Amino acid sequence: MSASARLAELGLALPEVATPVGTYVPALRHGDLIYTSGQLPLVEGALLATGVVGQREGDVTPERANECARAAVLNAIAAAAAVAGGIDSIAGIVKLTGFVASAPGFTAQPAVINGASGILADVFGEPGRHARSAVGVAALPLGAPVEIELIVATR
């Protein structure tokens, strides 16, 4: 089954690629690889959540951050697909780097980024399995709780 068919079967659609706010591009092809810029959990132009992820009062919960990772990876897939010539031109996912704005003492970054990894496996099947880093950081652009980058292989 193609990635586009799996995406539809999951009831998901790729969003419009966000216009960069700086002097960079959403994704860049080099040979058979596409590198995405960091993608935030924007849905229809608005962040799903803001703040750091943790267990304290007022923190973004790990569960909500997991949802943010899912939204951010859809944005990353959209950016890569735009450069690849469509989602079905993506042969597989090489690497996912996930950044989590983390409250002091929060160490469950991998659980947050599992949201993004799960989408990749669901959409691309075995070729969606990837190398990964889940990194805790003090802050992310616009106060986003999660940022996702991908390296994808093309057909």
Rank of each mutant, 00 (worst) to 15 (best):
L10T: 09
G11P: 12
G11D: 09
G11Q: 06
L12M: 14
L12Q: 01
L14E: 02
L14C: 02
P15H: 05
P15E: 10
P15A: 07
E16M: 07
V17A: 11
V17F: 11
V17S: 14
A18K: 04
V21M: 07
V21I: 12
V21C: 11
V21G: 12
T23C: 04
T23A: 15
Y24N: 07
Y24A: 11
P26R: 06
P26K: 02
R29I: 07
R29E: 12
H30K: 13
G31E: 11
L33H: 09
L33T: 14
L33V: 13
I34G: 06
I34V: 12
I34D: 00
I34T: 05
Y35S: 13
T36R: 01
T36Y: 06
G38P: 04
Q39K: 10
L40M: 09
L40W: 00
L40S: 05
L40F: 06
P41F: 03
L42Y: 12
V43L: 09
G45Y: 11
G45I: 09
G45M: 10
L48I: 08
A49Q: 10
T50L: 08
T50M: 08
V53W: 11
G54H: 07
Q55V: 04
Q55G: 07
Q55Y: 14
E57K: 15
E57R: 13
E57F: 15
G58Q: 12
T61N: 13
P62K: 04
P62E: 13
R64G: 00
R64Y: 01
A65I: 06
N66F: 10
N66I: 01
E67V: 10
C68D: 05
A69N: 09
R70H: 01
A71Q: 07
A72P: 00
N75V: 01
A76Q: 10
A76S: 11
A78R: 03
A78I: 07
A78Y: 06
A79P: 08
A80W: 03
A80S: 13
A80I: 04
A80R: 05
A80L: 13
A81T: 03
A81L: 10
A81W: 03
A82K: 10
